[in-house]
Design a binder for these strands. Structure first.
Length: 119
DNA sequence: TGTATGACCCTGA
DNA sequence: CTCAGGGCCATAC
């Protein structure tokens, strides 16, 4: 196994800690690993990561929540497949994790209860 | 040593 | 919404 830098190790650790059904941006992962502004290092680390590992690489998206691979490529389809399998919706090429969705739903319910059905 | 490339990001127009 | 400009870091040539 090639020896990865400490930075790359931290990055991969953060990625592996992303809960199922949730997604993070490259920049967010970098910041979470204590490397703000080093989004590029995240992509590099993911490429270096051994295939076959349990690393949930598919939960890492762009800052705008879109898949980083060229649309239609094999990797793109693979990532989309894995995300859908975890309940992550893909609307207009952009991902919406379940947590945000349910939060928004309960938020709407609360708003309706407090303010009434119409605005 | 210097340039080019990438699973990127932010700001401003 | 798009586009351009600058920043970022590791690798390859």
């Amino acid at each position: 196994m090639p020896h990865l830098s400490a930075n790359a190790e931290r990055i991969l650790a953060v990625v592996s800690a992303i809960p199922c059904g949730q997604v993070l941006g490259y920049g967010e992962v970098a910041a979470c690993a204590g490397l703000p502004g080093r989004a590029r290092l995240v992509s590099w680390a993911l490429k270096q990561a051994p295939p076959g590992s349990d690393l949930p690489w598919h939960r890492v998206l762009r800052a705008n929540r879109s898949i980083a691979f060229p649309a239609g490529s094999a990797a793109y389809r693979e990532q989309r497949k894995r995300l859908l399998a975890e309940g992550v919706k893909l609307v207009n090429g952009k991902a919406v994790d379940r947590r945000t969705d349910s939060e928004r739903r309960s938020e709407n319910d609360l708003d309706r209860a407090l303010w009434g059905p119409e605005s």
